[in-house]
Computed example of a mutant assay.
Amino acid sequence: MTRRIVHTGTATFPSRSAAGPVRGVAAALLLGAVAALLSAAPAGATAQPVALPVTWGVAPASAPTFDFALEPGATLTDQLVVTNHGEVPLDLAVYAADAFTSPTGALDVLPAGTPSEDLGAWISTDVPQVLVAPGERVAVPFTLTVPADATPGDHTAAVVTSLVTGAGAGAGAGGVAVDRRLGTRVLVRVAGDLAPSATVTNVDADYAGSWNPAGTGDAHLTFTVTNTGNVRLTGPLAATVAGPMGVGAVSVPLGDLPELLPGDAITLTGTATGVAPLGRLSASVALAPVVATTATTTLPDDATSHALDPATGEAHLWAVPWSVLAVATLLVGAVLAWRTLRRRARVRFEAAVQDALAAA
């Protein structure tokens, strides 16, 4: 029985995410060239005793990216070019798979052997396997057929090449097989009514204060953004934290939402600094969604990026000024102690006076 090493990774494509306070947003993506896709070996794949290292690349044959605007029922053909940069021949499996937004905000594809239900199922390669000699380039034709009842909007997949390597006969008898995958994104925007929309939900906030009585603290936010529309979305995120009736409001940018595919959701975190401890605070996260487009000219003119109504989510948190309360407690304690000592001194003085008068 072959043991397969499974590398968990993501497909990376052109990023629309700006660096910022939002953590977990890792969407550095590729412009239709090479993306490392590492996962379980395709069903039925046979481990090859290929000498390592092996290096190959994939790219569209006639354009920087596979980005298409198509009508329902349309069919097109294109080619994926595979280049062997190594010194050994490569026998690669070729197939298409649906894409999705990973928890890190990058683009990933379904594991090998998992059936595609969307764009990955619309693409068929002319051959399931391709042999590429060292230093050679081979074009792999594929056909994309949009179903007549396809839903309008964005559909995303990848054309993937896969190489399963192992230790010869040992890979079939308890040896190790390693699957390396390399793919290029395919984007189809199906004609029809575009309905961009998003929600911000599950907002959670907590406060970390300062021991400086006059200082401020940080509000740590966690929230989920869901693409509830039918087009890819990005856009700037911002947070606002305020005290009762808006007192002491602090607004901070949280960077850009990574490109989010229709139907996908991502949980993000952010921090608002300089928040005064004013008791019960309100925290809101707002997304100004923007329809994502690419640099390609194959998308229609009316698909230009445009701003939409913001999506917001709210939560409440307590910001107790513990250091102020501690100082106040000490002051009150000091005053009470002083008054007690003073009262006792007065009682002793009055008793001494009474004793003196009685002795006289």
Score class of each variant (00 low, 15 high):
P321C: 09
D108M: 04
A358E: 14
V132T: 06
P262S: 10
G248C: 03
T298E: 13
F68D: 01
V241S: 04
H220S: 12
D355W: 09
Q354L: 12
P134R: 07
V275P: 03
L38K: 05
T269V: 13
G215S: 11
V327K: 04
V291W: 06
T125N: 12
T298V: 05
D179Y: 04
A173M: 15
H306F: 05
A69S: 07
T298H: 02
L341V: 10
L90W: 00
A26C: 11
G20A: 05
L52D: 03
L281A: 01
G279V: 13
F68K: 10
D78G: 02
L278S: 14
T273N: 07
W318Q: 09
R343Q: 03
S116G: 11
V82D: 00
G217L: 06
L90A: 11
G135M: 09
T201C: 03
P49G: 12
G263E: 08
W122I: 08
A315L: 01
S102P: 05
L144D: 02
T271I: 11
Y207G: 00
L281R: 01
L254F: 10
T267C: 15
R4G: 08
V81S: 02
V146L: 01
A205I: 03
F223N: 04
G120R: 06
R3Q: 15
V132I: 15
P60W: 03
V188E: 00
R185M: 02
T101R: 02
E314W: 10
A169H: 03
A295W: 08
P115E: 14
P244S: 11
R137W: 03
A40L: 06
A26I: 11
A167C: 10
L110W: 12
V176D: 10
S102V: 07
G170C: 08
A276T: 05
H220E: 04
T296Y: 07
W211R: 01
A43G: 15
L331T: 13
R185T: 00
L308I: 14
A157M: 11
P14K: 04
V6S: 12
D98F: 06
A28Y: 03
G57K: 01
W318Y: 15
P49A: 13
G9H: 05
T184N: 04
T83D: 00
R280A: 09
L37F: 00
G183W: 07
W322M: 10
A59N: 02
E350C: 12
T125E: 08
